[in-house]
Design a protein around this nucleic acid. Sequence first.
DNA 1: ATTGAATGCACCATCGATTGTGCAAAACGA
DNA 2: TCGTTTTGCACAATCGATGGTGCATTCAAT
Lengths: 356, 356
Amino acid sequence: MNHQSKKKATIYDLSILSGCSPSTVSAVLNGTWQKRRIKQSTAERIQSLAEQHRYTANLQARGLRSSRSGLVGLLLPVHDNRYFSSMAQTFEAEVRSHGKCPVVVSACRDPVEEQATVETLISYSIDELFIAGATDPDGVHVLCEAAGIRHINIDLPGTKAPSVISDNYEGARMLTQAIIQRLAATGSPEPDEVYLFGGRDDHATRERIRGFRDVKRQMLGADPDECIQPTGYSPDMTQKAFETYYAREKKVPRGLFINSSINFEGFLRFLAQHPHETFADIVVGCYDYDPFGSFLPFPVLMIRQDVAGMLAKAFEIMEESRPAAKIHLIAPELVQPRTALTGPLDLIREIDTFTR
Amino acid sequence: MNHQSKKKATIYDLSILSGCSPSTVSAVLNGTWQKRRIKQSTAERIQSLAEQHRYTANLQARGLRSSRSGLVGLLLPVHDNRYFSSMAQTFEAEVRSHGKCPVVVSACRDPVEEQATVETLISYSIDELFIAGATDPDGVHVLCEAAGIRHINIDLPGTKAPSVISDNYEGARMLTQAIIQRLAATGSPEPDEVYLFGGRDDHATRERIRGFRDVKRQMLGADPDECIQPTGYSPDMTQKAFETYYAREKKVPRGLFINSSINFEGFLRFLAQHPHETFADIVVGCYDYDPFGSFLPFPVLMIRQDVAGMLAKAFEIMEESRPAAKIHLIAPELVQPRTALTGPLDLIREIDTFTR
DNA sequence: ATTGAATGCACCATCGATTGTGCAAAACGA
DNA sequence: TCGTTTTGCACAATCGATGGTGCATTCAAT
């Protein structure tokens, strides 16, 4: 008759049950009992009592006292695409393996929401914060700095905290080059046949545009401005951009560099409005990897950013005592059409097999 | 020179600055000051001080005292697919609109991890828990019940707490029917030409299999057992199942019912190993929606579960004082090939447009 | 002038843990 | 046998907020 029915057991309950003081119980249960020279037999007695009564520490109380929570945050722009959701997946595994508790929240690419969310996290005495794709990394930095919270930028860099980002310039070069090479197989492409759609005025987009243009100039000898169409990160605006182009030109550019999978979704919406055959000969490059996107009826080249690598680097930097506010570039990978890569989900595969 | 440089301001700091007692400051800043008959002028003075010094409440302290945290949890099996990531996206928006703080965590479909994760959440005095796709919903229920935490199952039902799930039986019927009708256009299909792959021994899979078999018997007159291949929820096992079939039959079944987008990824891995033309005439139905999956080079029928509807219903039930442990079915939607639906991301579209 | 109610706020215990300090009792050495 | 260490643990302050209770004032009513 384990009467754990009422409320959760506290160190005070166990203190009474064991005849020891609350501080002894606390020391035993948080592992510092050796330092406090608690007798092993005492420790064992308390531990077994704790198990019997299903004691678990009240983490808010612990956090209040120690002003650390054991929480590690990941701030995402959005959940709902493969890039960020795989980041969340990888992040969780990594944080868990450090014995801490991952907290993933999204801020909808809204600077105000970002600040508010970060303030909330700080109010929970979060220990560390990974800031992925923030619209205003330096604004977030100020908050973290004031609260003394270790933090790092991922995906979009800031100037005041260390940043781990994808090598967008090189990635864009690879992608553009691959697009043009594919196009060359069916007649050498003109400069105005290769367009870039999507993205907005952020570091990643700027670097990608730079890579795109450099390669175009180098391989095609020219790089008209109208081939750059930064439509923001919304499927809808991207679709509109394609519709506009199509209404004018009665076709789509043969070579498309699409800035993210979210923009690619906008292109899908456009596609859905038109017969499949209209786009028989296009070549698409997407700066993001999505396994389904890789198998579309036209060649889709994709860039897979090395999420695991970026996070690994970020965790490594977090360990440093006083990390420099520099930018670390992580090389992405060019993915050929019709390629199904493994991802973070594969790491949990064994569980499925065991439990069947 | 706002000297917020040191640490975060507390009610004690503001108490000294304002000349009022800490309890007065507290009452003013948490909105209960009217009840406590604090003079309006006092309240305003304190509020302005709070702003100047960028006061934000220490939520751990508040949570400790009030044994509620303002946190609302969503427990996910995994982050990394469109179904669950869109659930996370919708969930966050909904929780935010209630003025609380969303916390999304995944438990990797591992019952042990599930329990541990939930215990952690409980230790943070989480207020409510939404349990999506738990392998052991009733186990989680016991923990929540003991801690007095309101909770609800989503996607996979439990027997002890209210559950909101997709109408898997009807969804599977729709999907199977659509697959067979499509196949009929190119010659009437035999019963052994329509297979189901993926899923494991959970409620959702059982219902889907039931729907699949019923429709097959009804439309094709038979329903051989070997057409059911529950491979678990891992891309890898799914791929292996297809390879095995292919090695034996030198083809794939013309009609495929794939139990989830994760299993579909396994099929992609299989596809990647074989020339595109091998599968020219297949029809795939996938019990999950993925925008890119909808545009593959063969007809892909998809079921979109009504994530928004399920969450809305779940939040509604959460409001009830003593909700019954019954199952609420939410109708899913059949999505025709080459369809790009809008999702939760579209709700944040305006932000993009404004900030450009 | 006296009583009673309303107003405005301070006091203090409390939530559950952590941690510096101090003091017996036991063990040890001479 | 008497100091000196070492061992083993208890005490009490503390983290920051909440909320019940109680005590002055002020004001109105008689």
